[in-house]
Design a protein around this nucleic acid. Structure first.
Ligand code: ZN
Ligand code: ZN
Ligand code: ZN
Ligand code: ZN
Lengths: 165, 165
DNA sequence: TTTGTTATGTTATAATATAACATTATGACT
DNA sequence: AGTCATAATGTTATATTATAACATAACAAA
């Protein structure tokens, strides 16, 4: 369920504790699989498992948390294995990296390529994704004035979510 | 020299290679000193030296680059010394941290508290600071709709600057 | 000059990420 | 099927960034 405000920003509400999260993960997996198949990209078992762990919550998760889970499951795994899977998922636009947290989160809009804009609660850790065309326009305008070619951007808003106030 | 565009974004041009940078550093030091004095904060010799190194260029600099310089100068220094000085400068708003680069840069507008927005060239490393009220408004609007209390934000735009194209 | 506070020094280690090279799986082509 | 090139994963070691914990030194107020 997405909303659009007066500033033409589209956003999801923060994930409600009541939402059917297992369905949420199922849907994300199905989308990811379809996207990869459409591109001839290989959504291998390893990549799928890493993706499932990233999508297991709506909180950004660290690479070493994923690693720990693999190891606790008895799978002997080293950091490069996890980082390579994360790199693949990032390239395919299935997840985003949260630079301010050194962590990774599933993308809410994986079909269309876009730069994520994130709102992250410092207390519960939950995060949600924005797509603000006005922010994009602002950035484009300033970039044009500076004669700057934008390649990527990091937009992360940190604070306290409604539920935690 | 600052500009303001149609989207109400204030920004400096990228620092010109021809600008009088030693004056630039002198000014920054004088401002920093005045700000700290006004607040009763102690701008110690160590903090001053770290600040000078951060301001030595308009490229974000890593904590370990600063550490290396201290050590090359014959001063036996360990990481916490540098990080504590950086933390002080961040608290006083004299520098900003660039999360996407794990690096630090001098603030162009230290007098007034604000959240930095940065445009960073991936080739030459030069960076400049924006203050876009429209971006602020967008974020505030989305935050309000989400009933989210904004505490801090990370806005970093990466690409190729005019001189490097 | 004692005393509490702030700043810095010192040692060790945590947390995040990548380099380099070996091995295995996959898919295309014969 | 068998060969081959490529892509994916495994493995070991190490680089990079940051902090914990405790000791000492500098400072400033009483
Ligand atoms: Zn969910
Ligand atoms: Zn996304
Ligand atoms: Zn300068
Ligand atoms: Zn600033």
């Amino acid at each position: 369920m997405s909303f659009t405000d007066a500033e033409n920003t589209t956003f999801d509400a923060f994930p409600k504790p009541t939402h059917d999260h297992s369905q949420c993960v199922k849907d994300a997996l199905a989308k990811a699989l379809a996207i990869c198949q459409g591109r001839g990209a290989r959504f291998t078992e390893l990549r799928k498992q890493v993706f499932e762990l990233v999508c297991a919550s709506h909180k950004p998760i660290g690479a070493y948390d994923i690693l720990d889970t693999f190891q606790k499951r008895g799978r002997k795994t080293a950091p490069p294995t996890i980082y390579r899977a994360l790199d693949f998922l990032l390239e395919q636009g299935l997840i985003h990296r949260i630079a301010s947290l050194n962590a990774y989160i599933g993308c809410d809009f994986p079909q269309e390529p876009h730069r994520g804009q994130f709102v992250i609660c410092k207390l519960c850790g939950e995060a949600t994704e924005l797509v603000s065309h006005t922010i994009e326009k602002c950035i484009a305008s300033a970039a044009e004035k500076l004669d700057f070619q934008v390649q990527s951007r990091v937009i992360e808003i940190l604070g306290i979510c409604s539920a935690c106030q």
